[in-house]
Write a protein that binds this DNA or RNA. Structure first.
Lengths: 131, 131
DNA sequence: TCTTATTTTAGATTAATCCTTAATTTATAT
DNA sequence: ATATAAATTAAGGATTAATCTAAAATAAGA
C-alpha cells in the first residue's frame, strides 16, 4: 500500500456515482500528487478490478469507466451526452437457463439501459424535425 | 448502393453469429475487394448501425463488435478468450420502472452474461492452483 | 450524356491504453 | 535501525482502434 494507491482509492471513493474514466481519475489524482504517472493509475485500477473491489464498465463510449459501487445494479446511459446513472435491477429475474450457457461458467451479468436524457431527448427531437 | 457496400453487407451476412470486429470485417472484404479502404468500411458500418440494421456491441474488449442479428437477444462472453455466444432472454422480464428512469427516454437494453468457456475455465483452474 | 451529390481513397491524426526499463520505495527479517 | 528482497513507480515510447481530411472517383437522376 503506497501513497499513490491511497490517493487513487481516495479519488475513487470521492467520485462514487460519477463513473469516471481512467483519464479523469488520473487528472484528479494529479491535483493532490502532481508527479504521479499514467502507468501507476492504470496499473492500480486494473489491480482493484482484479481484486473485485472496482468495476470496469464498457458503456459504449470509447473509454472505460470505473465504478466503486460493486453492489448489484444496472446502468442507464444517455446516447446523446454520455451521462450515466445507476439503476436498481432484480438480478434474480435475469438468470441464464442451463441449456443456454454453452457450458460456460457464468460469473456475472451486466445490464445497460440506453436512451436519451431529458436534455438530449429534446435536442434530438429538434434535430430530427429540422434535418 | 456501391459495390463496396454490397461487399461489406455480403461479409456481414456471411459472418452472422460470429460477432466480428471492424478490422475483421475489413480484412474479409479485402479478400474480395483488395483496394477497399478502412474509412469506407467504418463509414458503412456506422451507416448500417444508424439505419438500425446492424448492432454495434461493446462487450468489454477493446474493439467494437458487429452483429447483423437485430432480434432481441443477449450475449454470453468468455473473459478468457473473448468468445461470444448469442443467448435468448426475455426482454419483458427486464424493464426499468418509471421511478428509476431519471426522465430518460429509454431506447433499448443490452444484457451481457460474462464468464469462462469450458476451455478457459479449466485453464483458469490450472493457473490458479499453480500460481 | 451531363450534372450534381454522394462515396471512396490514402494517409495522417487522434486518443486511450499498454509496455519497457531503470530507479525508487515498501515490507520483512535480522 | 539496517540490510535485503520484492514490489511499485515514473517516463515516455509503442500500440491500436477509430476518426478525419481533402481530393479523386463514382452513382443516380434529369
Amino acid at each position: 500500500m503506497t501513497p499513490q494507491r491511497r490517493a487513487i482509492i481516495q479519488v475513487l471513493l470521492e467520485s462514487a456515482g460519477s463513473h469516471p474514466t481512467a483519464e479523469q481519475i488520473f487528472t484528479r489524482v494529479r491535483d493532490v500528487m502532481p508527479d504521479i504517472s499514467h502507468a501507476t493509475v492504470y496499473n492500480t485500477l486494473h489491480e482493484l478490478v482484479e481484486m473485485g473491489t472496482l468495476l470496469e464498465l464498457n458503456l459504449g463510449m470509447r473509454e472505460q469507466r470505473y465504478d466503486i459501487n460493486t453492489t448489484d445494479h444496472a446502468h442507464l446511459i444517455c446516447l446523446g451526452c454520455g451521462r450515466v446513472e445507476d439503476v436498481p435491477y432484480d438480478s434474480e429475474a435475469l438468470t441464464l437457463s442451463p441449456e443456454h450457457t454453452h457450458g460456460f461458467q457464468v460469473v456475472d451479468c451486466r445490464v445497460i439501459f440506453r436512451g436519451y436524457c431529458p436534455a438530449c431527448a429534446s435536442q434530438e427531437r429538434h434535430l430530427r424535425s429540422s434535418g
